[in-house]
Design a protein around this nucleic acid. Structure first.
Lengths: 336, 336
DNA sequence: TTTAGCACTCTTCAAGTTTGATTGCTAACT
DNA sequence: AGTTAGCAATCAAACTTGAAGAGTGCTAAA
């Protein structure tokens, strides 16, 4: 589609613009980009790249900036996905070796690491429990009218929730509940917890519906609800020149303040590999001035959390994708 | 200290400035503020108020704005702490009636309500468990090398944590652990969980230090760590004219991004009543351009969470304090 | 096909100008 | 005494102007 020199010019413009945040002039490209021709020739190439929609101008006599199509082509064809230094590798490795007791903690640490290495804002979210199997479910009495349910899933996710009752419960009842629930739910998908189970338990057990019902309801609720969203390095974005525009800054704060938007955004990516959404490619129109890069952290094919970077369209895609690839590999257990 | 008319003038200036965010001119005060005199007289009063340090000017021919001292005087002597409408009362009441299973949830809901009613950004944090007594402590085995500890405190706070072991644990052991820990810890302060307890348990029980040690360590850790910080309505602040200054906006994002700063800020307030910190009165110099209003949510004298509002110095103190007072009363169980 | 050269366009910056808001002062008024 | 009208002085904000500079697009020659 594009001849070699056009590719080189496009790549040079994208990378120059990522570095400087200024429209790139034909002159700027004659230095340090391995292009053996004059600025006039580059001007001709740029003109054609603009005609095919890879470049834009901010005004008639300005340099060029990449268009959405230009960024997309760069991300698909031109970027260097191994743009990661030995120091960065060492730093990432050491961070990921932190011993964690909860899997969600690991996603958080990974997100924090990405934010530190790339200097962009990251957001992360735990897995929806609904994709998993119940490994074990335990009930603990706290006081006489309060109980905690702890659910362990097959990939090691632990969810707990408090249930309150309108009547007293005793240890004996808790034992029966423990036995009955585990009997029916061990190794079953989350959807098993529903109306039929409730009826079955109500029939089997001698306790009133006032005991069974709140348990089922609360467990369903906690398993279905979206996980907590973690935000790292929001302030880092504010050092970028894009954020000198009040409108951009305000949009950004609106985005990170809207948990549902973030959750949707993170949940919508494909499970495989790394997803890049450039500007208007984002489903949410609020994100049209930003780029988002996400990946899902998996173990044995089970999703264990999603991590996303949000930054300006002029994002350092090479660095971001290189770091994400490396972390993704590490998290998925590949340690070479 | 100030005669009646000076008070009126100061109050009018503070309130006008809170409304308009513009320096207040002598002319503006002749309308709608019940001051029966000419602009010239007001100019004389303003001049004297400025000499005594209650007012500032942005430049020689500008109107006046309140100084820190002016705001402080207003907050201490002039504000209306019942500036709350029937609708707001109804709205707040309905929100606070939400049934919650965890006490921390209530703090969160209250913070969210305050943000919605006042249109300022709120931050909230749960109580440090260390101020409380252990009511009950329960251990649940999850798999063979993982355990969950659930701690219930005397004011109903529930804390849970996962503990991992390097060796297998069985149900029998968990039972003993449950018995021993409860025996030693019921109704004791959190500090009881420490080295002497560890040694005692190690002597009493036949299990290896590999079991006792991680339990004590992890429980200590989770009980001592700061609670999660919740932020509500960060975007609301960005609608204020103060945030048209990039520097202010950036400082604000830095503040809300620094969890330790927020935690310190919320923990430092006095337990009693409502704390108001205006600009430089804040301990942290990062907050010098902002005002912070906090209160601690208590039940039976036990602290159950702190809620703070952060906004510009030009904050609507009357509204904020009225709403806080009302919510504080409601949370503390006073329902009239 | 590439390049040098040059006219043209447009932004940015600084300096100058106008406008309008507001004060402080003075002198008259109650 | 305290209050007020009137007016010069002050200053920010908004607009105007002009020069400098960066960059392109086009043309004609290599």
């Amino acid at each position: 589609m594009l001849d070699e020199r056009k590719k080189k010019v496009l790549q040079a413009i994208v990378e120059e613009y990522i570095n400087t945040a200024e429209p790139v002039s034909s002159n700027a490209l004659t230095q340090n980009h391995g292009l053996e021709c004059s600025s006039a020739t580059i001007r001709n190439e740029m003109s054609e790249l603009e005609k095919s929609g890879f470049l834009d101008k901010t005004h008639t006599s300005s340099g060029r900036i990449p268009s959405a199509k230009g960024y997309r082509y760069y991300v698909d064809e031109l970027l260097n996905d191994n743009d990661i230094s030995l120091e960065e590798i060492k730093y990432i490795s050491s961070k990921l070796e932190t011993k964690v007791n909860e899997i969600e903690e690991l996603t958080k640490i990974a997100a924090n690491t990405i934010s530190e290495v790339t200097h962009y804002t990251t957001i992360s979210i735990g897995p929806k429990a609904t994709t998993q199997l119940i490994e074990e479910i335990k009930f603990v009495l706290l006081g006489s009218r309060m109980m905690m349910a702890v659910i362990l899933t097959d990939s090691g996710l632990v969810k707990e929730t408090i249930i309150k009752f309108d009547e007293d419960i005793n240890e004996k009842q808790v034992e029966t509940i423990n036995y009955m629930f585990n009997n029916k739910l061990k190794h079953q998908p989350i959807e098993t917890i529903d109306r039929p189970l409730e009826e079955y338990l109500y029939d089997e057990m001698t306790y009133s519906i006032n005991v069974i019902k709140p348990i089922i309801e609360q467990i369903k609720k906690v398993l279905e609800e979206d996980n907590k969203i973690y935000l790292e390095g929001a302030n880092k974005s504010f050092d970028l020149p894009e954020f000198n525009s009040l409108e951009v800054a305000k949009n950004f704060v609106n985005i990170i303040d809207t948990k549902e938007l973030i959750a949707d955004m993170l949940n919508s990516g494909f499970a495989e590999d790394i997803n890049v959404y450039i500007g208007e490619e984002n489903e949410k129109k609020e994100l049209k001035d930003f780029s988002v890069v996400t990946f899902k952290h998996r173990v044995n094919g089970k999703e264990l959390g999603t991590i996303g970077i949000i930054g300006p369209k002029r994002m350092d895609y090479s660095k971001v994708i290189s770091v994400m690839k490396y972390i993704n590999k590490k998290l998925n257990g590949n340690n070479d």
